[in-house]
Design a protein around this nucleic acid. Structure first.
Lengths: 101, 101
DNA sequence: CCCTTGGTTCGAAAAAAGTCGAACCATCGA
DNA sequence: TCGATGGTTCGACTTTTTTCGAACCAAGGG
């Protein structure tokens, strides 16, 4: 593994992909947890604590490829961050309205 | 056919369903057309003008069941309206940010 | 009446997405 | 350097979603 996973540039982020990524309750829950700041992946449980790790990893992949989160290696762990700056710049007000709903 | 199709009550509308309905480019295009006011279904083309009518009808069903639009009989046609009041009340700012993006 | 028009529903097939075990990989601590 | 830890990727399977023709339906017009 290269360690660094691919992330879309800001200019490549598509509104429909972001909406799709957020349209799943588990992925939305993850996104909400990241609204308060970055988290270790291990510290970030969706709703089900017994979720298989491959499934959890897949959720993160969908969010990452849509441009909603960053997933970067951090020591032996993964640091997850919400791409708030990019999303706010591209779609002003969208993230806030989703998180506040 | 009863003529009147089922619509969710405002209280039944789910954020994730709305996000999913808007996460498809065709359905988003339809929604944008309705932002300026109600339209006859016949007057509301998505992107492809040669879209089969059953496919178009299905798009409308997804949007209707998510609570994004109303689809009501109007003479021999169908009147489509964006449920802006309901969406604004439930998810303030969401619709505007999506439409302005 | 019948026929056209505008639209829904059904059914089946294809495409996409979700799920998860197993294998793999990279890093840190002992 | 070995093992444990935290996570990704692969592969196969299940489920959901999409697509669209064909059948159907309701309302108006001739």
């Amino acid at each position: 593994m290269a360690g660094d996973l691919p992330h879309p540039e800001r200019s490549e982020i598509q509104l429909t992909d972001v909406l799709f990524a957020l349209s799943d309750p588990e992925r939305l829950a993850i996104t909400r947890q990241l609204a308060d700041g970055p988290l270790d992946m291990a510290a970030c449980h969706a709703t089900d604590p017994d979720l298989p790790k491959s499934t959890k990893s897949h959720f993160m992949k969908v969010l990452r490829e849509a441009g909603v989160i960053r997933n970067e290696p951090h020591g032996r762990r993964r640091m997850l961050t919400l791409r708030r700056d990019d999303l706010d710049a591209l779609f002003p007000g969208l993230l806030d309205s989703v998180l506040n709903a």
